[in-house]
Amino acid sequence: MFEQSFASLGGTLTFPTKDRDVYDLLKETCCRHQYFVYEQDGISYRARVIVTPHFSYAENFVPHARFSQEAWDGFCAEFPEDRKILEKAGRIGKQTKNNMVILDIKKDDPLEKQIGYAAWQILLSRFYDPYALIAEALTDEYKSGNLIPDRNGHLKRSDGPCSYCTNAAWTFPEGCPYGKTAQQ
């Protein structure tokens, strides 16, 4: 959605988004610095992007592993006994609307001792802990000096004027919530 919003204006993302699962994009943008880039008519912006699942649903942030149906079928064929253990433990969730198979596992899961090492490594490679990924990315931005708290502990805007919300290329309908565009 973000990519489409700015594509007509010449903005680009530094990573592909087409036909990718939101959790794949979450991991991609949290573990690697990915950006929205706009360079046109003397205006240049580069902003880190972190793609997240929809914030309105708490279940979108529960740690889990996920497989496409094809990948899950491959896992089951290669590790049939491990699939049985997962099934018996009630860890295989319902298939999602986009045909992903969700597994209720955690990073330090007691079930790990029952699952074969190779199978567990595959589960971990498909493991997502959304809050931990986002927290790690924000911590990285804080350590890099890109996020600075004010005296109340809220994020502080950088000093000086900003023309991100309102400029020659675009204007957000609500304008700048920080009043930074009025500064000279």
Rank of each mutant, 00 (worst) to 15 (best):
Arg66Trp: 00
Arg151Trp: 12
Glu141Asn: 02
Arg91Lys: 11
Gly179Lys: 01
Gly11Pro: 06
Leu123Ser: 05
Phe55Trp: 13
Lys156Gly: 00
Asp73Phe: 03
Gly116Ala: 13
Lys94Asp: 12
Tyr23Gly: 08
Cys30Glu: 09
Pro110Cys: 05
Val22Met: 04
Pro63Gly: 01
Asp19Ala: 08
Arg66Gly: 04
Arg48Thr: 05
Lys180Leu: 14
Pro149Gln: 07
Leu86Pro: 07
Gly175Ile: 00
Ala7Phe: 12
Ser163Cys: 12
Glu112Met: 08
Arg91Phe: 00
Ala58Glu: 15
Gly179Glu: 11
Gln95Gly: 02
Cys31Pro: 04
Asn152Leu: 15
Arg91Leu: 02
Ile85Leu: 14
Ile105Gly: 07
Ile115Tyr: 11
Ala65Val: 06
Val62Glu: 04
Ile92Gln: 00
Lys106Thr: 08
Lys156Ala: 13
Ser125Phe: 01
His154Asp: 14
Asp73Cys: 06
Asp109Trp: 02
Glu59Asp: 14
Ala77Thr: 12
Ser125Arg: 09
Gln34Trp: 00
Ala89Met: 06
Asp82Trp: 06
Leu123Thr: 08
Leu124Glu: 07
Arg126Trp: 09
Lys18Phe: 01
Glu141Gln: 13
Gln34Thr: 10
Ile85Asn: 08
Ile134Gly: 12
Lys27Ala: 09
Thr139Cys: 05
Tyr117Ala: 14
Gly179Asp: 08
Gly179Arg: 04
His33Tyr: 10
Lys113Gln: 14
Asp109Pro: 02
Glu3Lys: 08
Tyr128His: 09
Gln121Thr: 03
Ser158Glu: 14
Lys97Val: 12
Asp21His: 15
Asn60Arg: 14
Ile50Arg: 00
Leu9Lys: 12
Asp109Val: 10
Pro130Gly: 01
Asp140Cys: 03
Ser44Cys: 01
Gly175Pro: 07
Ala169Gly: 10
Gln121Val: 02
Tyr164Gln: 01
Asp150Val: 03
Pro173Gln: 11
Tyr23Met: 10
Ala71Tyr: 02
Thr171Leu: 04
Phe61Leu: 10
Ser163Met: 06
Ser144Gln: 03
Val51Cys: 13
Ile50Ala: 08
Gly74Asn: 08
Asp129Met: 01
Tyr178Glu: 13
Thr52Ser: 05
His54Ile: 03
Pro80Val: 04
Lys18Ala: 11
Phe6Gly: 03
Gly116Asp: 13
Lys97Leu: 05
Cys31Glu: 15
Thr139Pro: 01
Pro149Arg: 11
Phe15Arg: 11
Thr17Arg: 03
Tyr23Ser: 10
Leu155Val: 13
Ile92Lys: 03
Arg32Met: 11
Arg157Trp: 10
Thr29Pro: 15
Lys94Met: 08
Arg48Pro: 06
Asp108Pro: 09
Pro16Met: 04
Thr29Lys: 02
Ile148Val: 15
Ser5Arg: 14
Pro130Ala: 03
Gln4Thr: 14
Gly42Ile: 02
Leu111Ile: 15
Thr52Leu: 13
Ser125Cys: 02
Gln184Cys: 03
Tyr128Asp: 10
Asn167His: 13
Glu81Val: 04
Cys30Tyr: 12
Asp129Thr: 03
Asn98Thr: 12
Leu26Val: 11
Lys84Thr: 13
Cys176Val: 05
Gly153Pro: 07
Ser56Gly: 15
